[in-house]
């Protein structure tokens, strides 16, 4: 598939899925909505890829659905609405059933729906200028899937606070590290190098073992 909104490539055993709409804060438009599913499937199917890094071009990591653009594309809007209503989204590695390890490398702003990709990754690192916020309630929207994913993984108060403060407060990279939302904060210019190093280390492990561990641990989140 030829991608317009993503950069997808294999670099040795490291697969890269890079959001590439920097002029729009990497927001998910109708095209990216379709390309994400294809990209995860391609990297999952590529037997040479042992670990996947997900990051963004430009100043933002990911800022969620591009509601304005989707509103101009009724068919895409209907599709995204249906997938939301039925919780049948196909945006993240978790939605798409990716069995390989996924590292999210958060550059810059991660807002609203961007938190999906943090909640659904196995390892999350961030640039020192990364910020996290959830503006849904400030524009009359409900925050659900991405914050539910987060509250299963980090202290809940930090998640309810983020959801209810909306656009009016950002969580910084260092606090995100303290809370365990991310495990490592690096200088912005070193983010991709560090993500690559981690991915190469994962690639040394037996892929079947990693697959089994990933499946076991994520299944544990399904218990009440």
């Amino acid at each position: 598939m030829t991608y317009e909104t993503l950069e997808v490539q294999a670099e040795g055993p490291v697969g890269w899925l890079v959001f590439n709409r920097p002029e729009a804060g990497n927001a998910v438009d109708a095209r990216m909505f379709v390309e994400l599913e294809a990209a995860w499937a391609e990297l999952e199917a590529d037997t040479g890829v042992r670990a996947i890094v997900n990051t963004g071009n430009g100043r933002s990591f990911q800022t969620g659905l591009d509601v304005g653009q989707l509103a101009n594309d009724p068919e895409a809007l209907r599709a995204s609405s249906r997938q939301t209503r039925d919780f049948a989204l196909r945006m993240t590695s978790w939605h798409c059933g990716v069995t390989k390890p996924v590292i999210a490398a958060v550059n810059g702003t991660c807002a609203g729906g961007g938190l999906h990709f943090v909640a659904d990754a196995d390892i999350v690192i961030a640039a020192d200028d990364a910020t996290f916020l959830d503006p849904h309630v400030s524009v009359g929207q409900v925050s659900a899937f991405e914050t539910i994913g987060l509250l299963k993984k980090v202290p809940m108060e930090s998640v309810t606070r983020m959801a209810l403060m909306g656009a009016h407060e950002r969580l910084g990279a260092e606090r995100a590290r303290q809370l365990g939302l991310v495990s490592e904060v690096v200088a912005a210019g070193e983010l991709r190098d560090r993500a690559r190093t981690l991915a190469l280390r994962l690639a040394e492990h037996d892929p079947e073992r990693l697959r089994a561990v990933k499946q076991t641990l994520w299944t544990a989140l399904e218990a009440p």
């Binding site: 539910i148 959801a163 403060m165």
Partner: peptide, 18 residues
């Protein structure tokens, strides 16, 4: 006062989900 700037209905639905 900051939280009160957000949609009451959206916050209520968000609380129920979380």
């Amino acid at each position: 006062e900051i939280v009160a700037r957000n949609s009451p209905a959206a916050m209520a639905a968000t609380k129920k989900a979380l």
